[in-house]
Each structure stands twice: as structure tokens, then as C-alpha cells.
């Protein structure tokens, strides 16, 4: 389907991310085994996950804590390797060409921190250089993004002195310094006040309109309903449901549909 946007035309059916039978297990320490109430030393975090995300769409991975959402995003961002299976970002394998995948993605998660000693302006330039962005392009992009998020007034303030909301905005801007085709966000609005959360969600919608492919993990139903074109419901590391938001919901709200799926798999009432 050809889509016309203020930023240009693009083919919406173009597959940008494809996960194929991803599997990841972790070794549990004795302490972790006690906490998980298991004597089994391995935990399957992601178990044969497959899905596709398309250009100009937002794909939401929805699931409870510990379902495998973050592990999946970490595999897609090449921070960790799958035990088996593979994923392709803009045609590049996360296993065989991780550096090309890293050039094609912007990854934002609360686990990745910015050095408090430096200023947003310096870090923007530094990460721009890390992604090989040309200086002139970098300067123009900094001016545009800093103005868009109100960072320009804090551009020379050390990161350690920024408020949580401003820090999140700086992290967001730096994660897309190289104008990546795919933007991956792990719980993008976690810990944000309502105003900053709105700025972030509005920007995600804007990125989508610019033809970017966005993958986000969340357990917030309203965020999925508001932003996502496609949804994957993950439970116990397995893809329990995958499709467009309309197909998944089938007339129900996403919250009702999620718990229906959850009960059908776990056989438990919540």
C-alpha cells in the first residue's frame, strides 16, 4: 500500500523487521532458582518467536513482566545473540551482520545510560560520530531535534543535572541521532510524567508518519491502542497472538482480548 505523508511517500507493506523462530535461554543461579521456585538451571526467556514489522508502522510487543519482551528487543538490537533462530533488520541478520543492524536501528531502554559528566550537546555529537553521521547533517539534526523537544535551553547543562523527563528526552533524541530506519523502544513511557509521556508518544506517531518502523515493548494497554498498528502478545516467551490491532481485538478492547488470551494459555483467572 502506497502512503502519502508530509515527509514523502513510502510503501507500507515493506517488511523491515523479521524475526524467525527466535529462541533464548538463560542460566539461572542458585539464588535465581530459589526466587523462580524451580530446580531447573535453565530458563527459556524467548521460545520460538516469529513476527514481522513493516515500514511506517508501529509494532507493539505486549506482555506481562518476564514474558520475554525485553530479551526479544535486546536480540533485535544485537546486544545479545539468539541461541537459535535469526532476525533480520532492513535485510541484515542480527547474527551475521550485527554492526549493519546497529547502523539501521535506534535503541532506547532505561538500561542504557548517558554519562552524567557530559552535556546533551556533546553526547549528541559523540553518538553522531559513533554512527558516522556527517558533521553538517549532525549540526542541522541537532538544531531541529533539540528545538522540537525543548532541549536547546539545556544543551550545555551536564546530563547529571537534568530532570528525569529532560533526561528521557535527551536519551530519545540521541537514540535517533543517525536517523535510523527502525526505532526500538523498551517501555518508552516508563517513569515519565504525563507531559513528557505525551511528548514521547506524539513523537513516536510522528516518526511513524515519517516512514520509520517502530518496535516497542509495553504492558500499557492504552499505549497500544493509541499507537500500534500491529500487536504481538507474548506470554512465557511464546507468541500467543500476532496481527493487526483490529484483527487481534476483533471488536474487543485490547485489554479484554489480552486477558482472554492469557487465560486460554495459562488457565488462570487474573
Amino acid at each position: 500500500m502506497q502512503t502519502e505523508t508530509p515527509f514523502g511517500d513510502f510503501t507500507q507493506s515493506e517488511e523491515v523487521v523479521r524475526a524467525e523462530d527466535l529462541r533464548k535461554t538463560f542460566t539461572l543461579s542458585r539464588k535465581q532458582q530459589r526466587l523462580e521456585h524451580t530446580s531447573f538451571p535453565r530458563k527459556v526467556a524467548v521460545d520460538g518467536l516469529s513476527f514481522s514489522a513493516y515500514r511506517g508502522e508501529i509494532y507493539g510487543l505486549l506482555g506481562p513482566n518476564g514474558a520475554g519482551k525485553t530479551t526479544t528487543l535486546r536480540m533485535l538490537s544485537t546486544l545479545i545473540s539468539p541461541d537459535s533462530g535469526d532476525a533480520f533488520v532492513c535485510g541484515h541478520s542480527v547474527r551475521r551482520a550485527p554492526h549493519k543492524v546497529r547502523d539501521a536501528i535506534g535503541f532506547m531502554t532505561s538500561e542504557l545510560k548517558l554519562e552524567g559528566f557530559f552535556t546533551p550537546s556533546y553526547l549528541f555529537d559523540f553518538f553522531g560520530a559513533m554512527h558516522g553521521v556527517e558533521k553538517g547533517v549532525l549540526a542541522a539534526r541537532k538544531e531541529e531535534l533539540f528545538a522540537r523537544f525543548g532541549i536547546d535551553r539545556f544543551a550545555e547543562v551536564k546530563v547529571k543535572d537534568l530532570s528525569t523527563g529532560m533526561l528521557q528526552k535527551v536519551s530519545l533524541v540521541i537514540s535517533i541521532v543517525h536517523d535510523p530506519a527502525v526505532v526500538i523502544f523498551d517501555e518508552p513511557t516508563n517513569g515519565l510524567d504525563v507531559l513528557t509521556a505525551k511528548v514521547v508518544t506524539d513523537f513516536l506517531a510522528e516518526l511513524k508518519n515519517m516512514g520509520k518502523s517502530i518496535l516497542l515493548s509495553t504492558h500499557i494497554f492504552s499505549l497500544v491502542e493509541k499507537l500500534c498498528d500491529r500487536v504481538g502478545i507474548i506470554i512465557d516467551g511464546k507468541m500467543a497472538a500476532d496481527g493487526t490491532l483490529a484483527d487481534i481485538c476483533g471488536g474487543m478492547s485490547i485489554e479484554e482480548r489480552f486477558f482472554e488470551v492469557y487465560r486460554s494459555i495459562k488457565g488462570e483467572t487474573v
Binding site: T78, L79, R102, L112, K113, L114, F127, M130, H131, G132
Partner: peptide, 12 residues
């Protein structure tokens, strides 16, 4: 502090 991982996500 988790700042090294941020560099690891880049293509360096």
C-alpha cells in the same frame, strides 16, 4: 553505570 552498553549499541 550502564554507559558502556550505550556505546555498544552503536555501529562502532
Amino acid at each position: 553505570r550502564g554507559t558502556l552498553s550505550t556505546i555498544l549499541v552503536t555501529s562502532a
